[in-house]
Amino acid sequence: MTTTTPEEENGVKRRDFLYIAAGGLGAVGTAAAIWPFVSQMNPSADVLALSTTEADLGGIDVGSELTVVWQGKPIFVRHRTEEDIASAENVDLSTLPDPEADSARVIKPEWLVMIGICTHLGCVPLKGQGDYGGWFCPCHGSHYDTSGRIRKGPAPANLVIPPYEFLDDNRILIG
């Protein structure tokens, strides 16, 4: 069988198409079958339903801070003083490791809402400490200012602002 006739060549092409079709369908089916097994590890419906937390601001005096839990993470809710706000706004942004204006980080200037997780390696910073009047992370020495921005130390970014909105003057909904 060293020479091939035109019919045989056609046969070869049709045969190859059949095998390609079979293999392709099999691959598609396998991929579709794998998807549920990947998806099941994503948050389940009950976990997603708990993805918002309400915080009551009424009890937080000026200059005090409350920590609430949202999605398992600590959230710092600080009722800022006039000095806090002033020192946060009067900063030359070009001197910041992660330049960001204070106005971009708050909805109402007297309320600062941040995820209290250091952007370096995840420790929870301590309030009222550090060289910039804000927070200090004891793990590796990152200093955050009164807007929660990184000023000194190994952390690469400012403390993250979670999505939140004011339900009224005394309540916010985080998430």
Partner: peptide, 16 residues
């Protein structure tokens, strides 16, 4: 429906 098509295609491949 997918499996029915797959069955037909696999059967054709088997016969071939």
């Amino acid at each position: 429906l997918f499996l029915l098509i797959l069955t037909v295609v696999f059967y054709a491949a088997k016969r071939k």
